[in-house]
Write a protein that binds this DNA or RNA. Structure first.
Lengths: 204, 204
DNA sequence: TGTACATCAGTGAACGCGCGTTCACTGATGTAC
DNA sequence: TGTACATCAGTGAACGCGCGTTCACTGATGTAC
């Protein structure tokens, strides 16, 4: 028989690209099949439905990010290092696989309610867990970890969204120090390290 | 003839509610007409198409918010006051008209590229303008105003998104001081005022 | 090595459903005289 | 005040299009002997 794993990978790549560009609803099965260069029916050898295809792409990408963030959070390093590491993970994945991140940002509203509330599959939960531990250890001023997690996610995700829309230019990786510094300050972290390079954001 | 303005207002309200709950694509003309209690054809007396209905709702709501933010930015008050005022506008409108905000947050990706790059119609531009002026006046450390605007918007919009999804509870208005403080710190504002009430976010 | 068979990825015409939209019609209400 | 007319918001059956999905079929490739 022919090897289906290559076709499946191409379907996933083209679907991701088209979903990210136009959205799920505006992308038809024929669009995807055409981009891959197969007949419509071929897609149903690999995915039960269009919905399952979109859901699989979202859940896999989202869980992979959550796992990496959780692992960084459990590394035992000081809080400031963890924040920078997590933001670096986010930014480098963004730069490496922009269609995936566009897709995650764009279609989060369709799937987020179905994601398990587990730090190993849920980005929000993984980030909240990091702040919960930091507060318990005194590295961050006490407060609502969910609120601080939301603000931290916003600080990183909104510039990513602006980059997708072309309002910000250049790689996200270049912004890691600025974003990490902003997150530490906004979260009320104890004595954030001074910035090492780049256009300084001076705190008077 | 019968007065059509009442029907039009009801169509707008029900469409907004349904678009916010399910998304535009998952809401049909029949759904909206059914919720209003009119025949499908009635909608076409007030809007040329479903797309025009959705676009009108988005552009009107988005421009109204942008105008209020721009006005606050031009009030001549000190930067710290402006930030708090803008965040209060955002949070109070969120609490008062949650369907509108859910709709704006959810469907921004469909329309944002069509919004004029004018501070009187574009929330992003209005916020960027405030930071541009603050940097020129020395109230904020020099840097990329678009990046700082993105981070500030993220700090406010992400908690709003979490509230829509039920991950954060309670009114956004209650978070105005905490959000304003986070924005000022993250933006590198000169000497932010100490917080007056609520669970303190202590900066060591 | 050669032959027969089973497997299954891929095909593409066809189906039926739900959608946005149309349009001839109704009838309530404002206006002219 | 009463009558004729014009206007236009609202009706709802009907239309046609594009969509997701199906399924009988093809043929390339792996396996058994």
């Amino acid at each position: 028989m022919r090897d289906g794993t290559r076709t499946r990978a191409r379907i996933e790549a083209e679907a991701l690209r088209l979903f990210a560009e136009r959205g799920i609803a505006a992308t038809s099965i024929r669009d995807i099949a055409g981009a891959v260069g197969v007949a419509e029916g071929a897609l149903y050898r690999h995915f039960a439905s269009k919905d399952e295809l979109a859901r699989t792409l979202f859940m896999d990408g989202y869980a992979a990010l959550a796992r990496r963030i959780q692992a960084a959070g459990l590394s035992g390093e000081p809080f400031g290092m963890i924040v920078e590491k997590v933001i670096r993970i986010f930014c480098e994945l963004f730069d490496e696989n922009r269609p995936l991140f566009s897709f995650l940002l764009l279609s989060q509203h369709a799937f987020l309610s179905e994601v398990a509330r587990d730090a190993s599959a849920n980005v929000v939960e993984a980030v909240a867990e990091i702040f919960r531990r930091a507060m318990a250890e005194g590295a961050v001023a006490p407060g609502d970890p969910d609120l601080v997690a939301a603000m931290a996610l916003g600080i990183v995700a909104q510039p990513a969204t602006f980059t997708v829309y072309g309002r910000l230019a250049g790689p996200m990786s270049a912004r890691v120090p600025a974003l990490a510094r902003a997150v530490l300050l906004a979260a009320g972290a104890a004595a954030p390290a001074p910035m090492r390079a780049g256009p300084a954001i001076r705190v008077v």
